[in-house]
Amino acid sequence: MRAEPGESTLVERSSRRVFLRDAAMLALAAAPLSSYAQHGTSGLVTPPVRLEDTRLVDQTGTERSLNSMLLDGVTAVQTIYTGCSSVCPLQGALFSAVQQRLQQTRGRYPVRLLSIGIDPLSDSPSALHEWLKRFQAGPAWTAATPTLRDVDGMRMALAGSRLPLGNIADHATQIYCFDASARLRWRSADLPRVDEICNALGALGRA
C-alpha cells in the first residue's frame, strides 16, 4: 500500500527524531564523565532542601511557581539551555530514555520530568516547546525558565555549590530528584545513567 504524501512526511519526521535521539544516547554512553564539570555534591541530600519558590514561565507561556510544579509528585529536574549544541542534547536524550522507562513505574505519586532553561534571554516558551518536541516529550515532561534575576540563584541552589557560576556553558549535568513535598532529596553525579535516575524516582514514588 502506498503512503499518502502527508503520511510519508510524518514518517520521515518521526524517523529523524528517533535517529537523533538514538545518536545522542550513543554519544552519552561514550562521553567521559571528566569532560564535564560537576558542581557541588552528589548522592542523598540530608537534610532535604526546599528551594525558594521562584516564578517560572513554561513552554506554553504560562507563569507558574516552582512549588506548584513539584508538589504532589516526584520530579527529576535538569538544567539546560535550548541553544546548546554540546552537552544539552545528551541531557535531552537522557530524559527521553528515562521517560520511556518510567512508563512501567508505579508508585504512590505521579512521576514527572522538568527541564529548567538557564538562559532566560533565549529560552523563550517557543524555544522550550521546540526543544521538548525534539525529544518527543510526553505530557509528564515540562520545560520552564526562571527570570534573569532568579536563574543564577536557582542553579546554585540545585547544585549545592557556593562557588560563582561563571560562563553559562559551564553548567552542571547533574539530575536533581524532588519528593512529593517539593524537597530536593537526591543529586546525581554528572551525566548519570538512566537506571540511576529511574531507581531514585522509583524509591521516592514509593516512600
Rank of each mutant, 00 (worst) to 15 (best):
L28V: 08
L28E: 07
L28S: 13
A29N: 15
A29E: 14
A30D: 14
A31K: 14
A31G: 00
P32S: 08
L33Y: 00
S34A: 13
S35V: 12
S35G: 14
S35I: 12
S35K: 14
S35A: 15
Y36S: 14
Y36H: 05
Y36F: 14
A37K: 15
Q38R: 12
Q38Y: 00
H39D: 08
H39P: 00
H39A: 14
G40M: 07
G40P: 03
G40S: 10
G40L: 05
G40Y: 01
S42N: 12
S42A: 14
S42R: 09
S42K: 08
S42F: 09
S42D: 09
G43W: 07
L44C: 01
L44G: 07
V45F: 01
V45P: 05
T46Y: 11
T46C: 11
T46F: 11
P47Y: 00
P48E: 08
P48V: 06
P48R: 13
P48K: 13
P48D: 07
P48Q: 08
V49W: 10
V49T: 15
V49E: 08
L51V: 11
E52N: 08
E52C: 00
D53L: 05
D53M: 07
T54R: 13
R55P: 00
R55C: 06
R55L: 15
L56C: 06
L56E: 03
L56R: 04
D58K: 05
D58I: 09
D58Q: 05
Q59L: 00
Q59H: 15
Q59P: 09
T60D: 10
T60Q: 10
T60P: 02
G61E: 05
G61R: 12
G61H: 08
T62R: 14
T62I: 11
E63G: 10
R64K: 13
S65D: 07
S65R: 14
S65Y: 06
L66I: 03
N67M: 06
N67K: 12
N67Y: 12
S68E: 11
S68F: 02
M69R: 07
M69P: 07
L71P: 00
L71E: 14
D72M: 08
D72V: 09
G73P: 02
G73L: 01
V74Y: 03
V74M: 04
V74Q: 01
V74L: 02
V74T: 10
V74R: 05
V74S: 02
V74P: 03
V74D: 01
T75L: 04
T75R: 04
A76R: 02
A76W: 01
V77P: 03
V77M: 05
Q78L: 08
T79L: 12
T79G: 00
T79H: 00
I80Q: 01
I80R: 02
I80W: 01
I80T: 04
I80A: 03
Y81D: 03
Y81S: 04
Y81H: 05
Y81N: 04
Y81A: 02
G83P: 00
G83H: 10
G83C: 03
G83M: 08
C84W: 07
C84V: 09
C84A: 07
S86T: 15
S86V: 15
C88R: 02
P89M: 04
P89C: 09
P89Q: 07
L90W: 05
G92Y: 03
G92M: 04
G92I: 06
A93Y: 02
A93C: 09
A93W: 01
L94I: 12
L94P: 02
L94T: 07
L94G: 03
L94Q: 07
F95Q: 06
S96K: 06
S96L: 02
